[in-house]
């Protein structure tokens, strides 16, 4: 070959497959995410004013509430929403199946089991090492990776016939992990472990900066790695042989999506527990708004997931003050009927 060109799906400086509408939509989602964040920081059981904070007119207690409690919580809810949203979108693309969701197929449950095991068995090691804060997210990531890899091999590389199989495996894994987490939370006296409700329904409360920072890094990295694979996910929809013929290294694509999804879901579950149906609903809403191509759906789902989760957490905090609703209760209340509707709709096709 005289002229060897490098086909790049990523740094296409002259070709882009995002329409002007989609860019506008993503900007709108970004703006609403920022707006909701400000709302979520301001409102709560303890009223705060961001303007006063910026002008330095707030008391020490108010400052502490804002920077040590409210802000980490809002960031965590946004991150969890973004990671579940984008992972749901990427997994749906990878499985070529609109029913895939990190929760439904057992990835979140694997992560929760990994995290609880680490907390119970790990004992005091977190405080002994400087990188100890990474241990719980890493254990969660190991759990979620294990589940995705198991799905991968049981469906022979996400082959086309694996659709129902995958959901059945998900049911089994969810049940197994549920038992594991249940036993661990009841036998352990460890105060770190938190309650069963936390792991099965999720919560953004009680997060601190030292725990949050590794999770921010992991999720940000996963998203940055994932987004350039958007175009290849589009081509994969034609089928694996076709994607290969269009220049996609299908194996590499699969492993990258598996690992990045496992990492971002694992990291978010480690701090916020299992929050159901976000990964299912968010990509669908994103597609309904602006189209199905992954160059838009992946970043769009991250932004939409973050925005929705921030506002959902605000609602969970203020609706039955001074108590709090588990966040998973809200997402499941909306998500489960939506799931039924989706099954109904797919069956009609």
């Amino acid at each position: 070959m005289e002229s060897i060109r490098k086909l790049s799906f990523q740094t296409s400086q002259f070709l882009s497959f995002v329409s002007k509408n989609q860019i506008l939509l993503m900007s709108l989602l970004f703006v609403s995410m920022i707006f909701f964040s400000l709302l979520a920081i301001t409102f709560g059981s303890y009223g705060l004013s961001i303007v006063d904070f910026l002008l330095g007119k707030t008391s020490d207690i108010q400052n502490t509430v804002l920077t040590e409690i409210r802000l980490p919580r809002v960031i965590l809810s946004g991150l969890a929403g973004a990671s579940l949203g984008i992972s749901g979108a990427a997994l749906q693309g990878l499985f070529r199946n609109p029913l895939a969701d990190p929760g439904l197929i057992g990835v979140s449950a694997g992560a929760a089991l990994g995290a609880t095991l680490m907390i119970v068995l790990g004992g005091d090691i977190f405080s002994q090492y400087s990188l100890g804060v990474f241990f719980i997210p890493l254990a969660a990531i190991a759990g979620s990776s294990l589940v995705i890899l198991m799905l991968y091999f049981m469906t022979k590389g996400f082959g086309y016939e694996g659709v129902t199989y995958m959901l059945l495996v998900g049911i089994a894994i969810n049940a197994i992990a549920g038992v594991g987490i249940g036993i661990l939370t009841y036998i352990s006296s460890d105060s770190e472990l938190r309650s069963l409700t936390f792991w099965t329904m999720g919560s953004f409360g009680g997060v601190t900066w030292p725990l949050l920072i590794p999770v921010i890094l992991i999720i940000a990295l996963a998203i940055i790695i994932m987004i350039p694979y958007s175009r290849q996910l589009d081509l994969l929809q034609l089928g694996e042989p076709e994607a290969f013929r269009l220049g996609v290294d299908v194996q590499k694509l699969k492993y990258t999506i598996i690992l990045t999804c496992a990492a971002s879901v694992g990291a978010s579950v480690a701090l916020s527990g299992m929050i159901g149906f976000v990964g299912l609903i968010v990509p669908h809403l994103t597609r309904l708004l602006g189209g199905v191509n992954h160059n838009y759906v992946l970043p769009g789902s991250a932004l939409m997931g973050a925005a929705l989760m921030i506002i959902a957490d605000l609602i969970a905090r203020i609706i039955i003050q001074p108590a709090e609703l588990p966040i998973g209760l809200i997402t499941s209340a909306i998500g489960s009927p939506f799931f039924l509707w989706l099954i109904f709709k797919i069956k009609k096709l």
Partner: peptide, 17 residues
Amino acid sequence: QERAYIRSVMSQFQSIA
């Protein structure tokens, strides 16, 4: 990647999700 430039293929297709 390079193969994609030198040959294109049309075969039997699966449905698109």
